[in-house]
Amino acid sequence: MRNNNRGGESLSRAFAASVPVLLGYVTIGFGFGLLAVNTGYPAWFAVLMSIFVYAGAAQYIGIGLFAAGATLPEIALITLIVNLRHAAYGLSMIAPFGVHPRARPYLVFALTDETYALLSSATPGERADGRFLVLVSALNQSYWVAGTALGALAGALIPFRVRGLDFALTAMFIVLAVEQVLRLKKALPFVVAGLSAVAAKALVGDRGTVLVGMLIAAAALFAFQPRGAKGGSHAEPR
C-alpha cells in the first residue's frame, strides 16, 4: 500500500489539480487574515478559524458578525444557511468516499466548494485512489491556512490589498462547468442553473445566491427531466 512510486504519482497529480485553488485560496485566505486582524482579533485566532472552521464565505461573514456583536443564535443560523449547500456536495460523494473509510472523516470535514469542484471532476482512477483524494483536500486546506497566516501577519504590519488572483477560482468554476457540458452533452441544465443563480441573486442577494440558486435549479430540473430519465436509467459512465 505504501508504494513510494504510486504515492509520488498521486502527489504530483494532486498538486497539478490543486494549482488553481492554490492561487485563489492563498489570495482569499490572505484577505481573511487581514480582515480578522484589522477587526481586532489576534493572528493566531484567524489561523485557528481557518484550521477548524475552514469555510471561506462563512469565515468572512463570521468576522463581520463578531465585529457587529451578533448573538450566538444569529451566528449559528446564518452559518447554517450559508453552508447548507455543502450537504448537496456530500450527496454526490457518498459512493466515492465510501470506499475509503479511514480517510472519510477528513474528506467530509474538508469538503469546500473548491475541493468538491476538483474531486467531483476527478477521473474514475483518481477517485479510486484514496491518497489522491486526501492529498487534494489537504493541499487545498494548507493553501487556505498558509494564506490566512500570511495575511494575518501582514495585517499586523501594514494595510494591504491584493486584487486579481481570486479570479483563478472563477476561472476554475468556468472550466469545470465547461467539462460538465462536454460530459452531459445537454444545454438545458446549464441554462436553468445560470438563470436560477440570477433569480436567486435578485431574490435573496449575494449571501444566498449559491444555496438558493442550487435549490431552484435542482427543483426545476428534477420537475422537468425527461420521463425515461427517472429511476436510475442515466447512461453516464461514472
Binding site: F173, Q180, G194, A197, A217, G231, H234
Partner: peptide, 21 residues
C-alpha cells in the same frame, strides 16, 4: 441518483454565475 448526475453541473454553473452576479 438525479442529484449525483446533475449536482456537479448545477453547482459549477451556479458558483461560476454567482461570481458574476
Amino acid at each position: 441518483s438525479f442529484v449525483e448526475v446533475y449536482m456537479p453541473a448545477i453547482a459549477m454553473t451556479v458558483l461560476a454565475t454567482a461570481a458574476y452576479t
